[in-house]
Simulated scan of single mutants.
Amino acid sequence: MSTVKDGAVTAPRLKTSAMIASFADPGQKTAPAPFGRALAALAETDPRIVGLSADLSKYTDMHVFAKAHPDRFFQVGMAEQLLFGAAAGMAETGLVPFASTYSVFAARRAYDFICLDIAEPNLNVNIVGGLPGLTTGYGPSHQATEDVAIFRGMPNLTIVDPCDSVDLEQAVPQLAAHAGPTYLRLLRGNVPTVLDEYDYTFELGRAKVVRPGNDVVFVSSGLMTMRALQAAEALAAHKVDVAVVHAPTLKPFDEATVLAELDTPRLAVTLENHTVVGGLFETVASALVRRGLTRRVVPIGLPDAFLDAGALPTLHDRYGLSKAAIVERVLEELR
């Protein structure tokens, strides 16, 4: 609510629950727990599907699956290494595990178990990481701002960074059908529904041009595709025509689609909910160099730093992930 101080009315304070905050805008169309619902629905037709969690089923939407299929859900407690070791054993017997925890615990705490128990034997284990990037107001202990950078170097691992509920609902069965291990940057709770308005379908390993444009091209992943589309609409009022390329699969990366869009005179910008070190920006940059394409790419992403705690709207403004910050940055580049 607005407050009055020394006779002046101040702007309302922005608040979000730090742990279960939603990045959805007020009044935006959302879907509740799309990952958990999609997994529970898939399990109705595929008896191999099992779910595991490390004491965080409520905060990774795995509780939806647990309620629907209690005999196929396994709670291992606060033991992330055990979580992925157990999932590997289940996969060895022919089951298809989805193992959920926070991204920070999967990437930082259990890396060796994932690498040697799951990735090296190329098992069908689906790692579900909650609170990726700046999707929580908690500080560095829970903000997985470097998870993609950590996991990109792991052989055999497919990495998916979904934009919205459409991506999540369509990705779950494709992840289950994929032969090797996957890492999903989970969006949980009330997740925005955005891509249904753009004749879009998720295809594992493929990037999609969801909006054409003549002046600027955005290459984005995760929730930043939502922000890219919002910024593109706002920039149209400035007579700036923006294309948006959504790249939900970060590894393997769809170089052909992305580079075809970047090999033009348009201003090129990457947008990611991740540090600019080791994520989408550097994936795009290395692809350009390998193909012998010389051009500048402007990175919009999180800094190479430990981030502050606070309300998500405030933090997104502070670190340049908000629609207003993106619009301002593009206009500066075009001046």
Rank of each mutant, 00 (worst) to 15 (best):
L321W: 04
F113R: 03
V160L: 01
R227E: 12
S22I: 08
V298C: 04
E120Y: 14
T264D: 10
V242D: 03
P26M: 06
Q75P: 09
D55H: 08
H178R: 13
G205M: 03
T314C: 04
L186Q: 03
D61M: 06
A41T: 12
P32M: 12
F306H: 13
R290F: 05
A24V: 03
D61S: 12
A24S: 15
A285D: 15
L39I: 10
K239D: 15
M62W: 05
M154W: 04
Q81R: 12
Q230V: 01
T145M: 11
G139R: 07
A91D: 00
V64P: 03
S221G: 14
P97M: 10
T30H: 10
D308V: 01
F74D: 02
E282I: 04
G137S: 11
L131T: 11
P121H: 11
K5Y: 09
T101P: 04
D263L: 06
K5R: 14
L262Q: 07
I118F: 08
Q170R: 12
P12G: 08
S100L: 00
V160G: 00
Q143R: 10
P34H: 09
A256K: 12
A309W: 08
A232S: 14
A149S: 15
T16I: 03
D25N: 11
L223A: 13
A177M: 02
L235Y: 14
N273Y: 08
A260G: 15
L39G: 01
G189L: 01
V330K: 09
E332M: 10
A260L: 02
G36A: 13
L82A: 14
G301D: 03
G36R: 07
F253M: 00
S22Y: 09
V160T: 03
A99R: 09
V244Y: 02
A171K: 07
P299G: 05
G51S: 13
G301T: 02
A106V: 08
M1E: 13
V289H: 12
L82D: 14
A171C: 13
D215M: 11
G77Q: 07
T60C: 10
L186W: 00
P303H: 13
P181L: 02
M62F: 02
A86F: 13
A177H: 05
F23V: 14
L116K: 11
G278N: 01
E146P: 02
V104S: 05
G153C: 11
L315M: 05
E272D: 07
A99T: 03
D199T: 06
A287G: 07
P12V: 01
L168F: 04
I326F: 14
F74V: 09
V194L: 06
Y138Q: 13
F35Q: 02
T283P: 04
S220F: 06
L175D: 06
G7Y: 05
S57Q: 13
M1T: 09
L56F: 06
P181Y: 06
A287V: 06
T201P: 03
L82P: 00
V240S: 09
R152K: 14
L259V: 10
N124L: 01
I118W: 00
D25I: 04
P181D: 04
G36I: 03
K15H: 13
D164C: 10
M78V: 15
A38Q: 09
A236L: 11
C115N: 14
R227K: 15
I326C: 10
D46I: 07
A231G: 13
A24E: 08
R266N: 07
F253D: 01
T182F: 01
P26K: 08
G189R: 03
V104C: 13
F73M: 10
L280T: 01
P70T: 11
